[in-house]
Design a binder for these strands. Structure first.
Length: 114
RNA sequence: GAAGAAAGGCGGGUAAUCGCAAAGGUUUUAAGCCUUUGAGGAAAGUCCGAACUCCAUAGGGCAGUGCGCCGGGGAAAGCCCGGUCUCUGAAAGGAGAAGGAAAGUGCCACAGAAAAUAUACCGCCCCGAUGUUAAUCGGGGUAAGGGUGAAAAGGUGGGGUAAGAGCCCACCGCUUCGAUGGCGACAUCGGAGGCAUGGUAAACCCCGCACGGAGCAAGGCCAAAUAGGGAAGCGUACGAGGGUGGCCCGCCCCAUGCUUCCGGGUAGGCUGCUUGCGGUAUCGGGCAACCGAUAUCCCAGAGGAAUGAUUACCCGAGACAGAAUUCGGCUUACAGCCUUUCUUCCACU
RNA sequence: GUCCCCAUCGUCUAGCCCGGCCUAGGACACCGCCCUUUCACGGCGGCGACAGGGGUUCAAAUCCCCUUGGGGACG
Protein backbone atom coordinates (compact mmCIF):
# COMPACT_ATOMS: atom_id res chain seq x y z
CA UNK A 1 0.00 0.00 0.00
CA UNK A 2 1.30 3.35 -0.90
CA UNK A 3 -0.61 5.08 1.86
CA UNK A 4 -0.39 4.39 5.56
CA UNK A 5 -3.10 2.40 7.15
CA UNK A 6 -3.76 5.02 9.80
CA UNK A 7 -4.91 7.41 7.09
CA UNK A 8 -7.54 5.08 5.63
CA UNK A 9 -11.26 4.69 6.13
CA UNK A 10 -11.98 1.12 7.13
CA UNK A 11 -15.54 0.52 8.21
CA UNK A 12 -18.58 0.33 6.04
CA UNK A 13 -20.37 2.62 8.48
CA UNK A 14 -17.75 5.30 7.92
CA UNK A 15 -18.24 5.13 4.16
CA UNK A 16 -22.00 5.36 4.48
CA UNK A 17 -21.60 8.32 6.78
CA UNK A 18 -19.60 10.19 4.16
CA UNK A 19 -22.02 9.28 1.37
CA UNK A 20 -25.12 10.39 3.23
CA UNK A 21 -23.89 13.51 5.09
CA UNK A 22 -20.98 14.69 2.96
CA UNK A 23 -20.67 16.79 -0.17
CA UNK A 24 -19.79 15.68 -3.66
CA UNK A 25 -17.36 16.84 -6.35
CA UNK A 26 -17.57 15.59 -9.95
CA UNK A 27 -14.39 15.31 -11.95
CA UNK A 28 -13.75 13.73 -15.33
CA UNK A 29 -13.02 10.21 -14.10
CA UNK A 30 -13.75 10.47 -10.38
CA UNK A 31 -16.53 11.30 -7.99
CA UNK A 32 -15.11 12.59 -4.71
CA UNK A 33 -17.22 12.62 -1.57
CA UNK A 34 -15.98 14.55 1.46
CA UNK A 35 -17.31 15.23 4.96
CA UNK A 36 -15.80 17.96 7.11
CA UNK A 37 -15.99 18.52 10.88
CA UNK A 38 -13.99 15.44 11.81
CA UNK A 39 -11.07 15.39 14.21
CA UNK A 40 -8.70 13.60 11.77
CA UNK A 41 -7.96 13.22 8.04
CA UNK A 42 -8.97 9.90 6.43
CA UNK A 43 -9.15 8.58 2.86
CA UNK A 44 -11.24 5.78 1.34
CA UNK A 45 -11.21 4.28 -2.14
CA UNK A 46 -13.94 2.41 -3.99
CA UNK A 47 -13.80 0.76 -7.41
CA UNK A 48 -16.89 -0.92 -8.80
CA UNK A 49 -16.94 -4.42 -10.24
CA UNK A 50 -18.21 -2.83 -13.44
CA UNK A 51 -14.77 -1.32 -14.08
CA UNK A 52 -13.11 -4.66 -14.66
CA UNK A 53 -11.63 -7.71 -13.04
CA UNK A 54 -9.52 -7.81 -9.91
CA UNK A 55 -6.24 -6.89 -11.59
CA UNK A 56 -7.64 -3.72 -13.13
CA UNK A 57 -9.48 -2.66 -9.96
CA UNK A 58 -6.41 -3.17 -7.81
CA UNK A 59 -4.29 -1.15 -10.22
CA UNK A 60 -6.70 1.80 -10.15
CA UNK A 61 -6.77 1.77 -6.35
CA UNK A 62 -2.98 1.73 -6.22
CA UNK A 63 -2.75 4.65 -8.63
CA UNK A 64 -5.19 6.69 -6.54
CA UNK A 65 -3.40 5.89 -3.31
CA UNK A 66 -0.07 6.89 -4.82
CA UNK A 67 -1.46 10.26 -5.90
CA UNK A 68 -2.97 10.90 -2.48
CA UNK A 69 0.27 9.87 -0.77
CA UNK A 70 2.31 12.38 -2.75
CA UNK A 71 -0.15 15.21 -2.20
CA UNK A 72 -1.31 14.31 1.28
CA UNK A 73 -0.27 17.66 2.79
CA UNK A 74 -2.39 19.58 0.29
CA UNK A 75 -5.63 18.08 1.65
CA UNK A 76 -7.25 20.11 4.45
CA UNK A 77 -7.35 18.54 7.90
CA UNK A 78 -10.44 17.36 9.70
CA UNK A 79 -12.09 15.93 6.57
CA UNK A 80 -12.98 12.40 5.47
CA UNK A 81 -12.57 11.72 1.73
CA UNK A 82 -13.99 8.90 -0.41
CA UNK A 83 -12.88 8.46 -4.03
CA UNK A 84 -15.27 6.69 -6.40
CA UNK A 85 -14.47 5.85 -10.00
CA UNK A 86 -16.76 6.42 -12.94
CA UNK A 87 -17.22 3.78 -15.59
CA UNK A 88 -15.14 5.69 -18.14
CA UNK A 89 -12.14 5.35 -15.81
CA UNK A 90 -11.64 1.89 -17.27
CA UNK A 91 -8.93 3.12 -19.64
CA UNK A 92 -7.66 6.07 -17.60
CA UNK A 93 -3.96 6.56 -16.87
CA UNK A 94 -1.99 7.89 -13.92
CA UNK A 95 -1.95 11.44 -15.35
CA UNK A 96 -5.71 11.50 -15.85
CA UNK A 97 -6.38 10.73 -12.19
CA UNK A 98 -3.66 13.16 -11.12
CA UNK A 99 -5.22 16.07 -13.02
CA UNK A 100 -8.65 15.21 -11.60
CA UNK A 101 -7.35 15.36 -8.06
CA UNK A 102 -5.44 18.57 -8.69
CA UNK A 103 -8.68 20.07 -9.98
CA UNK A 104 -10.45 19.02 -6.82
CA UNK A 105 -7.80 20.57 -4.61
CA UNK A 106 -7.94 23.88 -6.49
CA UNK A 107 -11.72 23.89 -6.15
CA UNK A 108 -11.42 23.32 -2.40
CA UNK A 109 -8.94 26.17 -2.01
CA UNK A 110 -11.18 28.59 -3.88
CA UNK A 111 -14.10 27.72 -1.67
CA UNK A 112 -12.04 28.25 1.45
CA UNK A 113 -10.86 31.68 0.29
CA UNK A 114 -14.42 32.64 -0.50
C1' G B 1 14.57 -27.43 -45.43
C1' A B 2 9.02 -27.49 -45.10
C1' A B 3 4.49 -29.16 -42.83
C1' G B 4 2.81 -31.51 -38.50
C1' A B 5 2.40 -34.42 -33.60
C1' A B 6 3.61 -35.31 -28.41
C1' A B 7 6.02 -34.23 -23.67
C1' G B 8 8.33 -30.65 -20.49
C1' G B 9 9.84 -25.63 -19.18
C1' C B 10 9.94 -19.97 -19.13
C1' G B 11 6.14 -16.06 -18.56
C1' G B 12 10.63 -9.27 -19.72
C1' G B 13 15.61 -7.91 -17.47
C1' U B 14 19.01 -4.30 -14.94
C1' A B 15 19.78 0.25 -12.08
C1' A B 16 18.26 4.71 -9.26
C1' U B 17 14.70 7.67 -6.26
C1' C B 18 10.07 7.94 -3.46
C1' G B 19 6.61 4.45 -0.96
C1' C B 20 3.43 -0.29 1.31
C1' A B 21 2.75 -5.09 4.53
C1' A B 22 4.75 -8.78 7.84
C1' A B 23 8.66 -10.82 10.86
C1' G B 24 13.22 -10.04 13.55
C1' G B 25 16.64 -6.52 15.87
C1' U B 26 17.42 -1.77 18.12
C1' U B 27 16.58 3.30 20.82
C1' U B 28 12.08 2.98 23.32
C1' U B 29 5.65 6.49 25.46
C1' A B 30 3.77 6.65 20.68
C1' A B 31 6.76 6.43 16.79
C1' G B 32 11.30 6.19 14.23
C1' C B 33 15.73 3.51 12.28
C1' C B 34 18.20 -1.09 10.26
C1' U B 35 17.91 -6.07 8.03
C1' U B 36 15.18 -9.94 5.60
C1' U B 37 10.92 -11.64 3.01
C1' G B 38 6.58 -10.48 0.01
C1' A B 39 1.16 -13.43 -5.76
C1' G B 40 0.15 -17.71 -10.14
C1' G B 41 0.60 -21.57 -13.80
C1' A B 42 -3.59 -20.95 -13.82
C1' A B 43 -3.88 -17.48 -7.58
C1' A B 44 -9.72 -17.96 -11.89
C1' G B 45 -14.43 -21.13 -12.49
C1' U B 46 -16.18 -23.39 -7.67
C1' C B 47 -16.75 -28.79 -11.11
C1' C B 48 -14.90 -33.24 -7.92
C1' G B 49 -12.09 -35.17 -3.56
C1' A B 50 -9.92 -34.55 1.27
C1' A B 51 -7.77 -32.17 5.86
C1' C B 52 -9.90 -29.17 9.82
C1' U B 53 -14.34 -27.45 12.77
C1' C B 54 -19.25 -27.77 14.57
C1' C B 55 -23.99 -30.25 14.48
C1' A B 56 -27.41 -35.28 18.06
C1' U B 57 -23.60 -41.40 18.64
C1' A B 58 -23.20 -40.36 13.14
C1' G B 59 -26.19 -46.72 14.23
C1' G B 60 -30.24 -49.52 11.00
C1' G B 61 -33.77 -49.19 6.88
C1' C B 62 -36.09 -46.65 2.76
C1' A B 63 -35.46 -42.88 -0.64
C1' G B 64 -31.91 -40.00 -3.32
C1' U B 65 -27.27 -38.72 -5.74
C1' G B 66 -22.79 -40.01 -8.12
C1' C B 67 -19.54 -43.44 -10.45
C1' G B 68 -18.96 -47.94 -13.95
C1' C B 69 -13.34 -51.90 -19.73
C1' C B 70 -8.60 -54.22 -17.23
C1' G B 71 -4.13 -53.71 -14.14
C1' G B 72 -1.27 -50.41 -11.19
C1' G B 73 -0.59 -45.64 -8.28
C1' G B 74 -2.87 -42.52 -4.68
C1' A B 75 -5.52 -40.41 1.81
C1' A B 76 -9.48 -39.93 -1.72
C1' A B 77 -11.55 -38.26 -6.30
C1' G B 78 -16.09 -36.84 -12.27
C1' C B 79 -7.87 -38.02 -10.34
C1' C B 80 -3.17 -39.91 -12.63
C1' C B 81 -0.11 -43.80 -15.33
C1' G B 82 0.17 -48.18 -18.45
C1' G B 83 -2.71 -51.50 -21.41
C1' U B 84 -7.40 -53.54 -24.13
C1' C B 85 -11.48 -52.40 -27.36
C1' U B 86 -14.22 -48.93 -30.60
C1' C B 87 -14.10 -44.49 -33.62
C1' U B 88 -10.83 -41.18 -36.23
C1' G B 89 -6.14 -39.30 -39.10
C1' A B 90 -1.82 -40.59 -44.88
C1' A B 91 1.46 -41.01 -40.43
C1' A B 92 3.49 -39.54 -35.70
C1' G B 93 -0.87 -39.39 -33.05
C1' G B 94 -5.95 -37.93 -31.17
C1' A B 95 -10.91 -38.92 -28.85
C1' G B 96 -14.19 -42.05 -25.77
C1' A B 97 -19.53 -41.27 -18.48
C1' A B 98 -16.50 -48.01 -22.60
C1' G B 99 -21.21 -52.81 -17.15
C1' G B 100 -26.23 -55.01 -18.51
C1' A B 101 -31.06 -54.37 -24.19
C1' A B 102 -31.07 -63.38 -24.93
C1' A B 103 -34.75 -59.42 -15.90
C1' G B 104 -38.81 -56.35 -17.01
C1' U B 105 -41.38 -51.68 -18.72
C1' G B 106 -41.58 -47.50 -22.03
C1' C B 107 -40.42 -44.87 -26.66
C1' C B 108 -39.01 -45.19 -32.01
C1' A B 109 -42.38 -38.71 -34.97
C1' C B 110 -43.07 -38.25 -40.56
C1' A B 111 -42.80 -41.71 -44.42
C1' G B 112 -43.67 -46.77 -45.23
C1' A B 113 -47.11 -52.97 -46.43
C1' A B 114 -44.65 -53.59 -41.95
C1' A B 115 -40.81 -50.36 -36.44
C1' A B 116 -40.35 -55.88 -33.22
C1' U B 117 -45.56 -61.76 -31.35
C1' A B 118 -43.19 -59.53 -38.16
C1' U B 119 -45.83 -58.30 -42.39
C1' A B 120 -46.98 -58.12 -47.95
C1' C B 121 -48.09 -52.09 -51.32
C1' C B 122 -45.76 -52.42 -56.27
C1' G B 123 -43.84 -57.12 -57.63
C1' C B 124 -42.06 -62.49 -59.00
C1' C B 125 -43.97 -67.62 -59.59
C1' C B 126 -47.55 -71.89 -59.70
C1' C B 127 -52.63 -73.81 -60.06
C1' G B 128 -57.87 -73.06 -61.43
C1' A B 129 -61.85 -70.20 -64.07
C1' U B 130 -63.13 -66.72 -68.17
C1' G B 131 -60.81 -65.45 -72.64
C1' U B 132 -58.02 -65.99 -79.56
C1' U B 133 -54.21 -63.06 -77.22
C1' A B 134 -53.52 -59.23 -73.91
C1' A B 135 -55.59 -59.41 -69.43
C1' U B 136 -59.13 -60.04 -65.27
C1' C B 137 -60.91 -62.82 -61.01
C1' G B 138 -60.13 -66.64 -57.21
C1' G B 139 -56.72 -69.98 -54.36
C1' G B 140 -51.72 -70.64 -52.94
C1' G B 141 -46.05 -70.11 -52.67
C1' U B 142 -42.21 -66.30 -51.92
C1' A B 143 -39.45 -62.04 -49.66
C1' A B 144 -34.65 -61.91 -54.43
C1' G B 145 -35.90 -56.78 -56.72
C1' G B 146 -38.52 -51.65 -56.36
C1' G B 147 -40.12 -47.96 -53.04
C1' U B 148 -40.00 -45.54 -47.47
C1' G B 149 -36.94 -44.47 -43.53
C1' A B 150 -31.87 -42.91 -39.05
C1' A B 151 -32.88 -48.08 -38.78
C1' A B 152 -36.36 -53.39 -42.65
C1' A B 153 -34.95 -59.46 -39.21
C1' G B 154 -27.15 -61.63 -41.15
C1' G B 155 -23.70 -59.57 -45.71
C1' U B 156 -21.18 -60.75 -50.57
C1' G B 157 -20.62 -64.45 -54.39
C1' G B 158 -22.07 -69.18 -56.36
C1' G B 159 -25.30 -73.40 -56.61
C1' G B 160 -30.30 -74.51 -56.47
C1' U B 161 -35.58 -73.53 -57.68
C1' A B 162 -41.85 -72.80 -60.84
C1' A B 163 -40.21 -68.23 -58.45
C1' G B 164 -37.51 -67.87 -54.17
C1' A B 165 -35.43 -68.60 -49.39
C1' G B 166 -28.96 -70.57 -44.81
C1' C B 167 -32.60 -74.51 -48.74
C1' C B 168 -27.07 -75.96 -49.75
C1' C B 169 -21.75 -74.29 -50.23
C1' A B 170 -17.27 -70.70 -49.80
C1' C B 171 -15.53 -66.24 -47.38
C1' C B 172 -16.80 -62.43 -43.73
C1' G B 173 -19.80 -61.40 -39.39
C1' C B 174 -22.53 -63.55 -35.16
C1' U B 175 -23.51 -67.29 -31.28
C1' U B 176 -21.34 -71.24 -28.77
C1' C B 177 -17.46 -74.96 -27.30
C1' G B 178 -12.32 -75.93 -26.77
C1' A B 179 -6.99 -74.91 -26.92
C1' U B 180 -2.91 -71.45 -26.53
C1' G B 181 -0.85 -66.60 -24.72
C1' G B 182 -1.83 -62.89 -20.89
C1' C B 183 -2.52 -61.36 -13.47
C1' G B 184 -6.64 -59.38 -16.40
C1' A B 185 -9.65 -56.55 -20.03
C1' C B 186 -8.78 -59.33 -24.33
C1' A B 187 -6.22 -61.50 -28.55
C1' U B 188 -4.99 -65.66 -31.84
C1' C B 189 -6.15 -70.52 -33.67
C1' G B 190 -9.44 -74.74 -34.34
C1' G B 191 -14.36 -77.15 -34.18
C1' A B 192 -19.69 -76.80 -34.13
C1' G B 193 -24.40 -74.24 -35.00
C1' G B 194 -27.54 -72.29 -39.71
C1' C B 195 -28.73 -67.01 -37.62
C1' A B 196 -31.59 -66.99 -32.80
C1' U B 197 -29.98 -61.29 -30.50
C1' G B 198 -33.12 -53.93 -34.37
C1' G B 199 -31.96 -49.14 -31.69
C1' U B 200 -32.34 -46.28 -27.20
C1' A B 201 -30.02 -47.15 -20.24
C1' A B 202 -26.42 -38.66 -20.89
C1' A B 203 -35.42 -43.07 -20.88
C1' C B 204 -37.35 -45.70 -16.30
C1' C B 205 -34.52 -49.50 -14.60
C1' C B 206 -31.14 -54.07 -13.09
C1' C B 207 -26.22 -55.36 -11.12
C1' G B 208 -21.73 -53.69 -8.49
C1' C B 209 -19.24 -49.79 -5.63
C1' A B 210 -19.28 -45.11 -2.78
C1' C B 211 -21.83 -41.25 0.02
C1' G B 212 -24.78 -38.38 7.44
C1' G B 213 -25.33 -32.71 7.14
C1' A B 214 -23.19 -28.02 7.03
C1' G B 215 -19.23 -25.03 6.01
C1' C B 216 -13.24 -20.66 8.35
C1' A B 217 -18.98 -15.50 7.29
C1' A B 218 -17.00 -23.19 10.24
C1' G B 219 -15.70 -22.81 15.20
C1' G B 220 -13.22 -20.93 19.92
C1' C B 221 -11.92 -16.80 23.45
C1' C B 222 -12.47 -11.65 25.50
C1' A B 223 -16.30 -8.20 25.84
C1' A B 224 -18.95 -1.70 25.81
C1' A B 225 -24.07 0.33 25.33
C1' U B 226 -29.02 -1.61 25.94
C1' A B 227 -32.39 -5.29 28.01
C1' G B 228 -33.21 -8.42 32.27
C1' G B 229 -32.19 -13.09 32.73
C1' G B 230 -28.90 -17.24 32.11
C1' A B 231 -26.03 -21.76 33.40
C1' A B 232 -25.08 -26.39 36.18
C1' G B 233 -26.84 -30.45 39.37
C1' C B 234 -30.93 -33.46 41.53
C1' G B 235 -36.07 -35.25 41.50
C1' U B 236 -41.09 -35.95 39.19
C1' A B 237 -44.52 -36.23 34.92
C1' C B 238 -45.83 -36.46 29.78
C1' G B 239 -44.97 -38.28 24.15
C1' A B 240 -48.52 -33.46 22.93
C1' G B 241 -43.53 -30.37 21.89
C1' G B 242 -38.53 -29.18 20.46
C1' G B 243 -33.55 -30.62 18.24
C1' U B 244 -30.50 -27.42 10.63
C1' G B 245 -30.35 -34.53 8.23
C1' G B 246 -35.35 -35.91 2.45
C1' C B 247 -38.33 -39.66 5.53
C1' C B 248 -39.01 -43.61 9.37
C1' C B 249 -36.90 -46.26 13.58
C1' G B 250 -33.45 -45.31 17.16
C1' C B 251 -31.03 -41.13 19.91
C1' C B 252 -30.79 -36.29 22.72
C1' C B 253 -33.42 -32.13 25.27
C1' C B 254 -37.55 -30.91 28.58
C1' A B 255 -43.22 -28.05 31.95
C1' U B 256 -42.40 -27.25 36.95
C1' G B 257 -39.96 -27.66 41.94
C1' C B 258 -35.42 -27.57 45.01
C1' U B 259 -30.09 -26.46 45.54
C1' U B 260 -25.69 -23.97 43.86
C1' C B 261 -23.31 -20.40 40.79
C1' C B 262 -22.95 -15.63 37.80
C1' G B 263 -22.97 -15.72 33.58
C1' G B 264 -24.98 -15.38 28.41
C1' G B 265 -24.74 -12.08 24.36
C1' U B 266 -24.89 -7.49 20.10
C1' A B 267 -21.25 -3.56 18.28
C1' G B 268 -16.11 -4.26 18.50
C1' G B 269 -11.46 -6.93 19.33
C1' C B 270 -8.32 -11.45 19.56
C1' U B 271 -7.83 -16.28 17.58
C1' G B 272 -8.48 -20.08 13.85
C1' C B 273 -3.73 -18.32 10.15
C1' U B 274 -0.03 -20.96 8.02
C1' U B 275 5.45 -26.58 9.02
C1' G B 276 2.59 -29.07 5.12
C1' C B 277 0.04 -35.95 2.71
C1' G B 278 5.92 -29.21 2.14
C1' G B 279 9.76 -27.73 -1.39
C1' U B 280 14.88 -28.49 -3.64
C1' A B 281 19.10 -31.69 -4.88
C1' U B 282 21.35 -36.57 -5.35
C1' C B 283 20.92 -41.86 -5.35
C1' G B 284 17.92 -46.42 -5.79
C1' G B 285 13.24 -49.32 -7.51
C1' G B 286 9.48 -49.01 -11.49
C1' C B 287 7.92 -48.65 -18.95
C1' A B 288 5.24 -44.77 -16.20
C1' A B 289 2.06 -42.55 -12.54
C1' C B 290 4.58 -43.02 -8.15
C1' C B 291 7.42 -45.00 -3.99
C1' G B 292 11.84 -45.24 -0.76
C1' A B 293 16.61 -43.34 1.35
C1' U B 294 20.01 -39.30 2.46
C1' A B 295 21.17 -34.17 2.70
C1' U B 296 19.32 -29.36 2.93
C1' C B 297 15.72 -25.22 3.26
C1' C B 298 11.48 -22.41 5.88
C1' C B 299 9.29 -20.01 1.13
C1' A B 300 2.91 -14.29 1.45
C1' G B 301 -0.34 -14.26 5.66
C1' A B 302 -3.77 -9.25 4.63
C1' G B 303 -8.52 -7.87 6.96
C1' G B 304 -12.08 -1.33 2.71
C1' A B 305 -7.64 -6.02 2.17
C1' A B 306 0.02 -5.31 1.25
C1' U B 307 3.90 -5.81 -4.78
C1' G B 308 2.96 0.57 -6.68
C1' A B 309 4.77 5.36 -9.09
C1' U B 310 8.56 8.04 -11.85
C1' U B 311 13.10 7.91 -14.73
C1' A B 312 17.11 5.63 -17.73
C1' C B 313 19.10 1.63 -20.71
C1' C B 314 18.71 -3.25 -23.39
C1' C B 315 15.87 -6.85 -26.38
C1' G B 316 12.27 -10.44 -29.68
C1' A B 317 8.54 -4.43 -26.99
C1' G B 318 6.06 -8.25 -22.64
C1' A B 319 -0.41 -12.56 -23.08
C1' C B 320 -4.02 -14.44 -19.57
C1' A B 321 -4.39 -12.57 -15.16
C1' G B 322 -3.93 -10.82 -8.22
C1' A B 323 -3.23 -15.21 -2.60
C1' A B 324 -7.93 -14.67 1.54
C1' U B 325 -8.47 -21.75 6.00
C1' U B 326 -5.16 -25.30 3.60
C1' C B 327 -3.96 -29.25 0.24
C1' G B 328 -4.75 -33.14 -4.22
C1' G B 329 -7.01 -32.91 -9.03
C1' C B 330 -10.25 -31.35 -13.17
C1' U B 331 -11.92 -27.45 -16.40
C1' U B 332 -11.43 -22.77 -18.69
C1' A B 333 -8.13 -18.17 -20.40
C1' C B 334 -3.15 -17.23 -22.36
C1' A B 335 1.37 -12.73 -26.60
C1' G B 336 5.78 -14.82 -27.40
C1' C B 337 10.00 -18.05 -26.61
C1' C B 338 13.14 -22.46 -25.42
C1' U B 339 14.44 -27.87 -24.99
C1' U B 340 13.73 -33.09 -26.23
C1' U B 341 11.52 -37.03 -29.08
C1' C B 342 8.73 -38.64 -33.27
C1' U B 343 5.93 -38.69 -38.36
C1' U B 344 5.38 -37.37 -43.61
C1' C B 345 7.33 -34.92 -47.92
C1' C B 346 11.35 -32.51 -50.77
C1' A B 347 16.70 -31.79 -51.80
C1' C B 348 21.81 -33.43 -51.31
C1' U B 349 25.71 -37.10 -49.91
C1' G C 1 -14.65 -15.44 0.22
C1' U C 2 -18.43 -19.66 0.95
C1' C C 3 -23.09 -21.51 -0.77
C1' C C 4 -27.30 -21.30 -4.21
C1' C C 5 -30.68 -19.90 -8.41
C1' C C 6 -31.89 -18.22 -13.39
C1' A C 7 -31.38 -17.41 -18.90
C1' U C 8 -37.08 -18.49 -24.89
C1' C C 9 -39.41 -12.50 -29.97
C1' G C 10 -38.53 -5.24 -28.10
C1' U C 11 -41.26 -6.64 -22.96
C1' C C 12 -44.07 -10.44 -19.97
C1' U C 13 -44.51 -15.48 -20.52
C1' A C 14 -46.19 -21.16 -22.44
C1' G C 15 -43.53 -25.45 -24.04
C1' C C 16 -38.51 -28.49 -20.78
C1' C C 17 -40.04 -32.87 -15.73
C1' C C 18 -41.83 -37.46 -19.78
C1' G C 19 -36.98 -35.63 -26.82
C1' G C 20 -40.37 -35.90 -32.70
C1' C C 21 -46.98 -33.33 -33.96
C1' C C 22 -41.93 -26.85 -32.81
C1' U C 23 -41.13 -24.10 -39.51
C1' A C 24 -41.47 -22.72 -31.05
C1' G C 25 -47.71 -20.83 -29.11
C1' G C 26 -50.05 -16.43 -26.58
C1' A C 27 -50.53 -11.26 -24.71
C1' C C 28 -48.76 -6.19 -25.04
C1' A C 29 -45.70 -3.23 -28.33
C1' C C 30 -44.16 -2.14 -33.70
C1' C C 31 -45.41 -2.07 -39.24
C1' G C 32 -49.16 -2.45 -43.30
C1' C C 33 -54.33 -2.87 -44.94
C1' C C 34 -59.73 -2.60 -43.76
C1' C C 35 -63.57 -0.08 -40.77
C1' U C 36 -64.44 5.62 -39.39
C1' U C 37 -65.15 12.45 -41.70
C1' U C 38 -60.74 11.61 -38.26
C1' C C 39 -58.74 9.31 -33.70
C1' A C 40 -59.67 5.34 -30.39
C1' C C 41 -61.99 0.45 -30.22
C1' G C 42 -62.48 -3.69 -33.49
C1' G C 43 -60.99 -7.11 -37.80
C1' C C 44 -57.09 -9.26 -41.13
C1' G C 45 -52.00 -9.89 -42.24
C1' G C 46 -46.75 -9.18 -41.26
C1' C C 47 -42.02 -8.51 -38.43
C1' G C 48 -39.67 -10.90 -34.43
C1' A C 49 -36.59 -15.45 -29.84
C1' C C 50 -34.58 -21.07 -27.65
C1' A C 51 -27.35 -17.03 -24.11
C1' G C 52 -22.66 -19.49 -26.67
C1' G C 53 -19.84 -24.12 -27.63
C1' G C 54 -19.37 -29.46 -27.42
C1' G C 55 -21.46 -34.42 -26.53
C1' U C 56 -25.49 -38.57 -26.27
C1' U C 57 -29.41 -39.83 -29.92
C1' C C 58 -31.91 -41.36 -36.27
C1' A C 59 -33.60 -36.63 -34.11
C1' A C 60 -32.13 -31.68 -28.66
C1' A C 61 -35.54 -25.42 -26.70
C1' U C 62 -36.04 -30.20 -23.89
C1' C C 63 -31.01 -35.01 -21.61
C1' C C 64 -25.43 -34.42 -20.08
C1' C C 65 -20.76 -31.37 -19.77
C1' C C 66 -18.03 -26.68 -20.27
C1' U C 67 -18.17 -21.38 -20.90
C1' U C 68 -20.57 -16.53 -20.71
C1' G C 69 -23.98 -13.12 -18.61
C1' G C 70 -27.51 -11.81 -14.76
C1' G C 71 -29.55 -12.37 -9.66
C1' G C 72 -29.81 -13.94 -4.40
C1' A C 73 -28.27 -15.54 0.89
C1' C C 74 -24.56 -15.33 4.70
C1' G C 75 -21.07 -9.37 7.89
Amino acid sequence: MSLKKDLRLKKRAQFLNVYSKGKRFNAQYLVIYFLSGKENKLFGFTVSRKIGKAVKRNRIKRLLREIVRVNVDSFPDGVWYVFNTKKIAKNAEFKDFESDIKKFLNWLNEKNFN
